[in-house]
């Protein structure tokens, strides 16, 4: 009776130890170029600056912002919670660890789309999942969120909602200041209620 359990214990410990001592798989999986091409044509990798801003304000735990600009620009200003990853180190251990995190939506951004697109291509080729690009990068973000354009003509309600959201977001990021004037609406100062939602699970499940 006891001997049976001793053997099983040794077997179990050896199996577990095996995982620790086995050499790490060095080679990276590369995906089929055809699949990669499909991904390049597909536009679902883009998130708008408004979508990203929403998720920052909601404090979405599944969001991981990856800043691919040079370190000095990152130090001057970066989106809250963003991690600086220089394109050089995309395929280094720290880079793959960062981008390989399960359960996170990795959102790349640079000053424009240029570097982010290239980083996206390289990482997607090495099978990084849930990788997105913030369309337009920091430039677009500044122009949209920080320099809110006043509405022109007779804006629709959705436009007004969007502008008041951006105003609220601006106050969230830079503190108080004159909100951009929206001439036709009396609700301009109202803070847009941010509806918190549980992070959507990729496959649902749970208990």
């Amino acid at each position: 009776m006891e001997r049976k359990y001793t053997i099983l214990t040794i077997l179990l410990v050896v199996l577990a130890l095996g995982l620790v001592v086995l050499p790490k798989n060095k080679e990276r999986k590369e995906i089929d170029p055809k699949v990669l091409l499909d991904g390049v044509v597909e536009r679902s990798r883009y998130l708008s600056v408004d979508q990203v801003t929403h998720r920052i304000i909601e404090n979405d735990p599944t969001l991981l912002l990856v800043d691919v600009r040079p370190a000095d620009q990152f130090k001057t200003f970066a989106l809250p919670g963003a991690i600086n990853l220089h394109p050089d180190s995309l395929l280094s251990q720290s880079g793959t660890d960062l981008l390989g995190q399960p359960g996170k939506d990795k959102v790349l951004y640079g000053n424009s789309d240029l570097i982010a697109e290239k980083a996206w291509l390289v990482c997607t080729r090495y099978s990084v999942n849930r990788l997105y690009i913030m369309k337009g990068g920091m430039n677009e973000w500044f122009n949209t969120i920080i320099k809110v354009k006043p509405a022109t003509g007779t804006p629709s309600t959705t436009d007004l909602d969007l502008i008041s959201f951006r105003n609220a977001a601006r106050q969230f990021f830079v503190g108080d200041g004159e909100p951009a004037t929206v001439t036709t609406t009396p609700i301009q100062k109202e803070k847009v209620p941010v509806i918190r939602k549980a992070p959507s699970a990729s496959t649902g499940g749970g208990c």
Binding site: S202, T203, G204, G205, G206, C207
Partner: peptide, 10 residues
């Protein structure tokens, strides 16, 4: 098979 664990209360 389906990428998730087992459950009951769900």
């Amino acid at each position: 098979i389906s990428g998730r664990g087992l459950g009951a209360s769900g």
